[in-house]
């Protein structure tokens, strides 16, 4: 019996201790800055280098570029940029390799939708998703991923 009584003592003590439950969803959850939520895309910064599409482990990023409409500037400008959120695993490898930080993660994790079509996010949506963008992106990695002979 003694073991049972000692155990009960612990349980009763827990009744009077501080509650640790979060009252989510009434109280929104604050995620730390590095949290990997859905991405935010800034088309002005994108240089269409395709590194994000190449590194994605599930191949969920598809993008096309068009030549720069401004005849003086060289390089490409982004035309379409889609992320398929059915298969994105939020691993943030794309933000790790992006040399210009055009694609960054936000802290937005509430991604449920009622239809699968809504999960195919295009550029406008990703651009508009500009709340809670995380500040610290590649703190350990130099821009553009690991450099040769770093």
């Amino acid at each position: 019996m003694k073991g049972l009584i000692k155990g009960l003592g612990v349980t009763w003590k827990a009744m009077t201790s501080k509650k640790v439950t979060y009252k989510y969803p009434d109280v929104p959850l604050q995620m730390p800055d590095r949290f990997r939520g859905i991405q935010h895309f800034d088309p002005d910064k994108c240089i269409v280098c395709n590194l994000c599409a190449k590194i994605c482990p599930t191949d969920c990023i598809t993008l096309t570029g068009k030549p720069n409409p401004d005849p003086e500037k060289k390089g490409k400008v982004i035309d379409t940029y889609d992320i398929n959120f059915e298969i994105c695993i939020l691993c943030d490898l794309c933000t790790e390799v992006c040399p210009t930080e055009a694609i960054v993660m936000t802290n937005n994790f509430e991604l449920s939708t009622y239809s699968r079509d809504d999960l195919f996010k295009n550029m406008d949506w990703l651009n508009g998703n500009n709340e809670l963008i995380r500040q610290e992106n590649n703190s350990a990695m130099p821009k553009g991923g690991a450099k040769k002979n770093v």
């Binding site: 730390p32 800055d33 590095r34 949290f35 990997r36 695993i89 943030d92 995380r134 990695m141 690991a146």
Partner: peptide
């Protein structure tokens, strides 16, 4: 979560080191 941004699937280590330094 504070260290690497995820609660369960961390994707934290890289060949040659770790991705993030401790905040």
């Amino acid at each position: 979560n504070e260290l690497c941004g995820a609660r369960l699937t961390y994707n934290y280590m890289r060949v040659g080191g770790v991705k993030w330094d401790a905040p």
